[in-house]
Amino acid sequence: MFKDLSPGIKRSITRSITVAFEQYMNRIDWSESKFDLSTFISEWRDYIQNQATWYDKVENDTKNNSQFHQELAVKINETIEKILSEEPTKEQMDEIEALQTELNQEYDYSCKTEAKYVIEKLKEELKKKRSN
């Protein structure tokens, strides 16, 4: 069923998983101990029903089909695995190192998307420090 969707809809589904996962992980500060798959799925479902463009383009019969749900579960797992396995860039690592040095703090990060989050968090902390 998933394979029968248009390439554009498949890309949109992948993008919705990526965006919802990043938003969820940012909300829980990328804490593995706070991660709850059922909560993420619930938030993703809310995202696709209210913000994703592809949701209204897929027939209700397809969306209600258990095989489609199984295939979506596989796609969710693949997408999350891809996000978590993408190494931070050298530029990200250098920027994090510089910010951590300036703030005298240290953050752990393991993937490109988490590094992006850490950079934003450190920049916000630096901004607060400079305004005091």
Rank of each mutant, 00 (worst) to 15 (best):
E22M: 13
A73D: 13
Y24M: 10
E78P: 03
A115I: 01
I119N: 07
K123N: 12
K10V: 05
V74M: 12
E95I: 02
V58G: 08
S42N: 12
K121D: 00
K90I: 00
G8N: 14
T62N: 07
T14L: 13
K75A: 10
K121V: 03
E22S: 13
E124V: 04
L99K: 10
E81S: 13
H69P: 02
E81Y: 03
N104Q: 11
E86V: 06
D29N: 15
P88V: 01
D46G: 05
A73H: 09
E78G: 06
S12Y: 00
A52R: 01
Y117Q: 04
W44G: 03
E78Y: 07
T113Y: 09
E91F: 07
K123S: 09
E124F: 09
K129Q: 14
E71M: 11
N77L: 09
F68L: 10
L72I: 14
E124C: 07
I28P: 07
T101N: 14
I17D: 02
E78V: 03
I9S: 03
A115L: 02
M93R: 11
Y107D: 06
K57P: 03
M25H: 01
E120P: 05
D29P: 02
I48K: 14
D46N: 10
K116W: 01
T62H: 06
S6T: 07
D46Y: 06
K127L: 11
K116T: 11
G8H: 10
E106H: 14
K112M: 05
Q23N: 15
F35V: 14
Q92C: 05
T39L: 15
E95V: 01
I9L: 12
N60V: 00
Q92I: 02
K90A: 02
I41L: 15
W54Q: 11
I13P: 04
K121M: 03
F35T: 13
N77M: 07
T62W: 02
T79R: 12
V74D: 14
V58F: 05
L37D: 15
R130N: 13
Q49E: 10
S6R: 02
K121E: 04
S31M: 13
S110F: 01
E22K: 15
E71C: 11
F68R: 08
V74L: 15
I119H: 07
Q67A: 10
T79F: 04
A20M: 04
E91H: 09
E86T: 12
V19F: 07
R15I: 00
S42F: 07
V74K: 15
K129M: 13
L99M: 08
N26W: 00
R15K: 11
E114P: 01
I28F: 08
S66N: 08
R11K: 15
F35C: 15
H69F: 06
I28T: 10
S16R: 04
I83S: 09
T79C: 09
T62I: 15
E71P: 08
I13R: 06
Y117H: 08
F68E: 06
E78R: 11
T113V: 05
R130K: 15
Y55E: 07
N132F: 00
F40G: 09
S12F: 01
D94G: 06
